[in-house]
Computed example of a mutant assay.
Amino acid sequence: MVTVGMNYVVLPGKQGEFEEKFAAVLGALDAADGHTSSTLWRDVVNDASYLITSEWNDEDAFKAFITSDAFRSVTSWGKAEILAGRPSHKVYKH
């Protein structure tokens, strides 16, 4: 099993839109092979900063998801409309 932490900073005023989109993306995550669960966290100091933690059976399952058309369409929209910068992620193996 691996946990993936994905860090995002959104444009000012776009927090609600980002949270709504995450709720929609959760359906795609739940349908992805190897995905166990995901949670959206918001920074209490900087409310434009978010962390999504996702549990996966293995790193290959996560890599398959982030190279999928579903993920690509969401990230293209996010880059153009919501995000203040490039997101980053880290894989934690356990």
Rank of each mutant, 00 (worst) to 15 (best):
D69N: 13
S38W: 02
I82K: 06
V45K: 12
V74S: 06
H94Y: 13
G16L: 11
T53D: 05
R86C: 02
L51N: 03
A24M: 11
H35G: 00
D43A: 01
G5M: 11
T67F: 03
A80I: 06
G5C: 08
V91I: 15
K79D: 13
A32W: 04
F18N: 00
G85V: 05
N46V: 09
L29I: 00
A24F: 09
E17G: 05
I66T: 09
A23I: 04
N46T: 10
W41N: 10
K90W: 04
K63M: 12
T53M: 11
I82L: 15
H35A: 07
Y50M: 07
T3N: 06
A28Y: 03
L29G: 00
A84C: 04
A48E: 15
N7S: 12
E19A: 07
S76W: 05
H89M: 06
P87L: 07
G78P: 00
T36M: 12
Y92H: 10
V25E: 10
E55M: 08
A64G: 01
Y8M: 08
I66S: 04
M1H: 05
L29Y: 00
E17P: 02
A28Q: 10
V44P: 08
A23G: 01
G78E: 15
K63I: 03
Y92Q: 04
E17C: 05
H94I: 11
F71P: 05
R86L: 13
V2R: 00
M6I: 13
E19I: 02
T53A: 11
S68E: 02
S68N: 07
W41R: 09
G85D: 13
E81L: 05
R42G: 04
Q15S: 13
T53R: 09
E55R: 10
F22S: 00
A31Q: 11
V9E: 13
V25M: 14
D30I: 00
V2T: 00
H94Q: 12
F71A: 14
P87S: 04
F65L: 11
A80N: 13
I52A: 01
P12L: 08
R72K: 15
W41T: 08
G85F: 06
A32Q: 05
W77M: 09
S73A: 15
V91R: 03
A80M: 11
L26D: 07
F71K: 04
K14P: 01
V25L: 15
K63W: 03
E55N: 10
A61F: 02
F22T: 03
A70E: 15
Y8L: 04
V91N: 06
R42F: 05
A31V: 01
M1D: 04
M1Y: 07
K79T: 14
I82E: 02
Q15E: 15
F62I: 00
T36Q: 15
V91M: 05
A61S: 15
F65A: 02
R42I: 02
T36Y: 05
V4M: 06
D69P: 09
N57Y: 06
W41S: 09
A70M: 10
